[in-house]
């Protein structure tokens, strides 16, 4: 990241409007060569739209972007030759075998004939599909399909990979394995932008871009993001009737935010004094207070807070 290599992906003021709806709104983004960047945000935040613009599948309404040194708007063909892409939806041919799919994508990427078989062998080994080369893709389980799709996307050795929620609907074991592959590729110098809505996967990334309502809300390493100032202190409240406690705390002065995490509550308070008043407050509201302890914010806490703060600002600005 500190080298002189030009950034693999640059977006400046990237915007996409569909009619009156702005899906991506002035997004700025820089990804260094060899980075694994996680694209995190709620559904409809604009993750897929951004990735599709960077791939040249959608024309930006405004702003510009370059990928692998090529301008997305002016040199789309060069961009396409230097990227691999896995769409949100599984999109290989189910009525072809693994090998036939690989050969097809190798063909349309013009992988040179002499290295084709070797690349296919590599992809099959990478995906762990040995012995299943001649199975119809429609008969494969989810994890294998995803790894095969990744194999198809890297046959032409692209320096930049865009993976749009590659692990959605895949079992945890297979997800883990998929991330191992991502890191193997990154170690080989491939730059990867991967969108996900699994928080645990965010931790596997070098950096995370948090996007909400088409805007970049925060960007940084997982550690940096966890260290962000949330504007208060975070406490965990356990052993309570979560629903009743949540309703009560949302009305308590000094509480910035409360959210349910499993059978516990995470409560963000303005100061330690508010935390001390919490027990008596809940009692007055006929809720049995449980154990309260200060905790360090997780990535999820940070995202929930940042997204909430952004929409509060939005409403404040609008009023």
């Amino acid at each position: 990241m500190t080298g002189n290599a030009p950034p693999a992906v640059v977006a400046e003021g990237l915007t996409k409007r569909f009619g009156a709806f702005t899906a991506v709104d002035g997004l700025d983004l820089t990804i260094a060569t060899g980075e694994v960047v996680g694209f995190i945000g709620p559904n409809g935040a604009g993750k897929s739209t951004t990735i599709r613009m960077l791939c040249g599948l959608l024309r930006p309404s405004a702003g510009r972007a370059s990928v692998a040194g090529f301008d997305v708007g002016r040199q789309p063909e060069a961009v396409r030759a230097h990227i691999g892409y896995m769409s949100q939806k599984f999109s290989l041919y189910g009525d072809l075998t693994c090998r036939e799919n690989l050969r097809f994508f190798g063909g349309i990427y013009r992988v040179p004939r002499p290295v084709m078989e070797e690349r296919i062998r590599f992809a099959i080994a990478m995906a762990g599909l040995e012995g299943r080369e001649d199975r119809l893709v429609s008969t494969l389980a989810g994890g294998w399909k995803q790894r095969l799709a990744l194999g198809c996307a890297i046959l032409h050795r692209p320096p930049v990979l865009f993976l749009d929620e590659p692990t959605s609907g895949v079992e945890p074991e297979a997800r883990r394995r998929f991330w191992d592959l991502i890191h193997t590729l990154a170690a080989g110098g491939v730059t990867i932008l991967v969108s996900t809505h699994y928080m645990d996967e965010a931790e596997y990334c070098n950096r995370i871009a948090l996007i909400d309502a088409g805007r970049l809300v925060a960007m940084g390493s997982p550690g940096e993001l966890r260290g962000l100032d949330l504007g208060g202190a975070l406490f965990e409240l356990g052993g309570v009737a979560a629903g009743a406690a949540l309703a009560a705390l949302r009305e308590m002065p000094g509480v910035i935010e409360a959210a349910i995490f499993g059978d516990r509550l995470h409560v963000l308070v303005r100061d330690a004094a508010t935390a001390e008043r919490m027990g008596p407050f809940l009692k007055r509201r006929a809720v049995e207070p449980g154990a309260l302890r200060p905790i360090a914010p997780s990535l999820e806490d940070v995202f929930v807070r940042l997204v909430a703060r952004r929409s509060e600002e939005e409403e404040g600005g609008g009023a």
């Binding site: 791939c55 040249g56 599948l57 063909e77 396409r80 030759a81 990227i83 892409y85 769409s87 939806k89 599984f90 999109s91 290989l92 041919y93 189910g94 994508f105 349309i108 990427y109 013009r110 198809c152």
Partner: peptide, 14 residues
């Protein structure tokens, strides 16, 4: 519908 069109169009194919 299958999404393969998108997968093909992201390649340098004309």
């Amino acid at each position: 519908e299958m999404g393969t069109l998108e997968q093909i169009m992201v390649s340098p194919i004309r």
